[in-house]
Write a protein that binds this DNA or RNA. Structure first.
Length: 565
RNA sequence: UGGGGUGUCGUCAAGUGGUAAGACACGGGUCUUUGGAACCCGCAUUCGCAGGUUCGAAUCCUGCCACCCCAGCCA
């Protein structure tokens, strides 16, 4: 993993920072920033940026600012601001005093614009949006100068003041940087730096009716905050020319912009536009739907901040476009949860199991470790055992596959932490569905070990029919059926690739009684089934709801899948 | 046909002229009261392609090819 400590394998950004520290380029300062626009919730792609920016700063005793890039009030809101702060905090990162808003710089930005106008480097343009587009030219043809390009500074100043005063209609005029309409880089063809938008801003109210554009705002915000390394994604590479131009023209402090490849994850989307659509059209149940790749969705799903950080470290930082496979994210969360989750028994799809030779009214309490690999770590709980139990429907096969080691007629298996039982028969309904499985237990095997040393291949989990608690369990699957749902090569859209079975709600699950007081958000391993957490929104003491974070690795399922191909 | 980028194992990703790290995945095995975990072994004669320079090239040169981004008064 890239880190400042091991001194090698630094990713290219950390290498630049290390080199800058060596040469004293920034007097040893390292100041980064995470600059989200509050127009949606943060997702796993933002996590990559957060981990990078806060990580690089921390490794170099620097700091990372949280700055809201709030220059487009039409799409932004305080709800998003609060959600973003909550998510960054959840990761454990601290921006300290460094919470900023681009909107706090509006006055300074306006002054900088005036400075540009006075220097003959910006002008007010009366072209409409459509005309501006036509004058811009194309990828292969140069643009043409706006007829307003030669206005004098005085006139520009007057017009710009009046734009600010609200004298002109939306879209009627813009302030443009005067660069080069024939520039091969389209970004440099006299970019608009201020537009008229007569809409109130969530922080500045109706103080402004003109708002600065990203390219003008971002570099100057970085400059004002004395950022050293302004890290952003690849699609801003062309914008770097303008970033540098603005700061050079104004002669102000000049950070270095560095671009890296954004995260793409298989079977999901990072596009805020699509994510917003999923939410507004009710395709998912809100920004924090556990199927969403949002930080809030993943949190509700049961992911830990540590696992997401590990994942980000696994995938590295580079400049090439990539598509990361889900397996890596799953590995990261399993690895983390494996070490911190108490084991507990839950039967997702119950099948009644009756132990015929177990005394009718009898019951006993069995000791079961919460963490079998190192019992002292988490201790033990009591699990009630009785004549009637529930076991997992799929742990019984009347006509077992040759490699199926679980329950089947005549077969002996171990009930986890309880007894060895041998299947003696089944009860079916008229249509042949198995209603009950009958067994005999071996009283000498209490705890699960046979005194005669005989081995059983299969161990299954169970729950007492009478003592267990009802619970709802939600099984989640990928939201899309194809690795790259937003790829539109064949003209398809994300809508064509929605996985209609991404949510499976099991209403009849039974869990062991120790879970009665499970706290919202608490994480468990349901033995042999996966990692689950108590839903933080809908679970209540008498009405438990669990979300499956991720399954356990399942070599049996893998084998079956391979066989069916 | 303009400009900016990128091409190393199925997927990420090191490597910056001295003879292809690591991780995930995958295959095999050990162990096992989770078909989990853990542990062991294996897994690129080859770095988009073609030439060239060199004792020696993924690394240098030349020419191709492929993919991504840019024509918002979005960020």
């Amino acid at each position: 993993m890239p880190s400042a400590e091991d001194g090698k394998h630094l990713d290219f950004i950390r290498s630049i920072v290390a080199e800058d520290n060596r040469t004293g380029k920034w007097e040893g300062r390292v100041e980064t920033r995470f600059p989200p626009e509050p127009n949606g919730y943060l997702h796993i792609g933002h996590a990559k940026s957060i981990v990078l920016n806060f990580g690089v700063a921390a490794e170099n005793q620097g700091c990372c600012h949280l700055r809201f890039d709030d220059t487009n009030p039409e799409k932004e809101s305080t709800e998003y601001i609060e959600a973003i702060k909550r998510d960054v905090r959840w990761f454990g990162y601290d921006w300290g005093e460094h919470l900023y808003y681009a909107s706090d710089y509006f006055d300074q930005l306006f002054d900088f614009a005036v400075q540009l106008i006075k220097a003959g480097k910006a002008y007010v343009c009366d072209l409409s949006a459509e005309e501006t587009r036509q004058y811009r030219g194309t990828l292969t043809e140069p643009g043409r100068d706006s007829p307003y390009r030669q206005r004098g500074a005085e006139e520009n100043l007057d017009l710009f003041q009046r734009m600010r005063a609200g004298e002109f209609e939306n879209g009627s005029r813009t302030l443009r940087a005067k660069i080069d309409m024939a520039h091969p880089n389209l970004v440099m063809r006299d970019p608009v730096i201020y537009r008229i938008k007569k809409v109130p801003h969530h922080r500045t109210g109706d103080k402004w009716c003109i708002y600065p554009m990203y390219d003008f705002t971002h570099c100057l915000s970085d400059s004002i905050e004395r950022i050293t390394h302004s890290i952003c994604t690849l699609e801003f590479e062309d914008n770097r020319a303008l970033y540098d131009w603005v700061l050079d023209q104004l002669g102000v402090y000049h950070p270095q912009q560095i671009e890296f490849a954004r995260l793409n994850l298989e079977y999901t989307v990072m596009s805020k536009r699509i994510l917003l659509t999923l939410v507004t059209e009710g395709i998912v149940d809100g920004w924090d739907d556990p199927r969403m790749p949002t930080i809030s969705g993943m949190r509700r799903r049961g992911f830990t901040p540590e696992s997401i950080r590990t994942f980000c470290e696994m995938i590295g930082v580079a400049k090439r476009d990539s598509m990361v496979d889900m397996g890596k994210l799953e590995w990261a969360i399993r690895d983390d949860l494996n070490h911190r989750s108490p084991r507990v028994m839950a039967v997702l799809e119950p099948l009644k199991l009756v132990i015929d030779n177990y005394p009718d009214g009898q019951e006993e309490e069995l000791e079961a470790p919460y963490y079998p690999d190192d019992p002292p770590k988490m201790g033990y709980r009591k699990v009630p055992f009785a004549k009637e139990l529930y076991v997992e429907r799929e742990d019984f096969m009347e006509e077992p596959h040759k490699k199926f080691w679980r329950l089947a007629p005549g077969r002996e298996v171990r009930l986890r932490w309880a007894y060895l039982v041998t299947c003696t028969g089944v009860v079916k309904d008229a249509t042949g569905n198995v209603l009950e499985v009958h067994c005999d237990y071996d009283p000498a095997t209490r705890g699960g070990d046979a005194p005669d040393g005989r081995k059983v291949k299969g161990t299954i989990h169970w729950v007492s029919a009478r003592h267990s608690l009802p619970a709802k369990v939600r099984l989640y699957d990928r939201l899309f059926t194809v690795p790259n749902p937003s790829g539109t090569k064949d003209g398809s859209t994300f809508r064509d690739h929605l996985n209609l079975d991404s949510l499976l709600a099991l209403e009849q699950a039974r869990v062991e009684p120790s879970l009665a007081q499970a706290e919202p958000g608490a994480r468990y391993q349901f033995e042999r089934k996966g990692y689950f957490c108590v839903d933080s929104k809908e679970s209540e003491p008498g009405d438990l709801v669990f979300n499956r974070t991720v399954t356990l690795r399942d070599s049996w399922a893998k084998m079956m899948k391979k066989e069916n191909k």
